[in-house]
Amino acid sequence: MIEMQDAAYGYGATPILSDMTLRLAPGSFHFLTGPSGAGKTTLLKLCYAELLATAGTITLFGQDANGLDRDAIARTRQRIGVVHQDCEFLDHLPVSENIALPLVVAGRDSADQDSNLKELIAWVGLSGRAHARPPELSGGERQRAALARAIIMDPDVILADEPTGNVDWDMSLRLLNLLCELNRMGKTIVIATHDLALIRAAKAQVQARVLRIADGRLTAAGTNL
């Protein structure tokens, strides 16, 4: 699904990530940990081709990421849901339209969207906030809206970058439960976080693999913290 073979990334002569070899299998659950600035966000960006490897190979759904043209990258992103810590929205549109945005840009029939959209909004607990504008949402509501937007296209992979960074513990658990549920549905989940408590909570629910980045390298990978 997503594979890295000796992948590296750097700005000019400064390496940020080196020798990254990784395989995200279908239905797997991964935590990406490491200190701030270790390169977790960079690794996630390599996974959805926002950044391109400066060395080695990254394969997205069987295609070399460096060989994808801009349209192919757009198509690939329709198969990858991304949730950022400071998730961005189209602030002039209501939450429901923001969540439906991937369907709109993919040209999906709006009649089919309505019932799925309502179900999804209810599933993330935003039924009462569907007509609110994103700036009116709390941090937790924004994260859930971003998660709903990330999964509305039924993607194969969900990448979450510090999804619980701006929310309290209860909301963190709620988001984690949603992601675990998605994993049980067969989605591949990658969560970048430095919140060890969150990882422990997840391991009670799913078989999660923990990847640790330090000094620009994956220094440990396994099921133990």
Binding site: E50, R77, Q78, E88, F89, L90, D91, L101, V105
Partner: peptide, 16 residues
């Protein structure tokens, strides 16, 4: 710029 970033993130093609 934010609109452009969001649209690219959710898979919108440049032409769209």
């Amino acid at each position: 710029q934010q609109v452009l970033r969001v649209l690219r993130l959710v898979g919108a093609r440049d032409s769209y």
